[in-house]
Amino acid sequence: MIPIEYWLIFSSLLFCIGAYGVLTRKNAIVVLMCIEIMLNSANINLVMFSSYHSVLHGVVDPSGQVFTLFSIAIAAAEVAVGLAILLSVYRRYQTIEVDKINILRW
């Protein structure tokens, strides 16, 4: 079995890449993709911990895997709504660069 640390480093790296992208990228579609990367890093965590707890306690612990199925479905729904929103933004602004969508400010 691959040691748990490797998985944790992998998922944390993915999470950081996603968070960095959300904070720095201008294109809303890329931001959307980065959010998906962050969600997927959490999914990896859940599956990994699920199998780790199964080994640790000797009983199969499926709740993490079930959670992952739900969160994948949620992420898909979020993408669908997100792309629809970006479409309507594009119709109003003719751009999806997030720093150009800025009429609301104090």
Binding site: F15, A19, L32, I35, M38, E78, G82, V89, Y93, I103
Partner: peptide
Amino acid sequence: RSAEAATKYFIVGGFSSA
């Protein structure tokens, strides 16, 4: 501004749920 509000809410909301 409604479209802009939705974009901002969606990006922040997605980030927070992640």
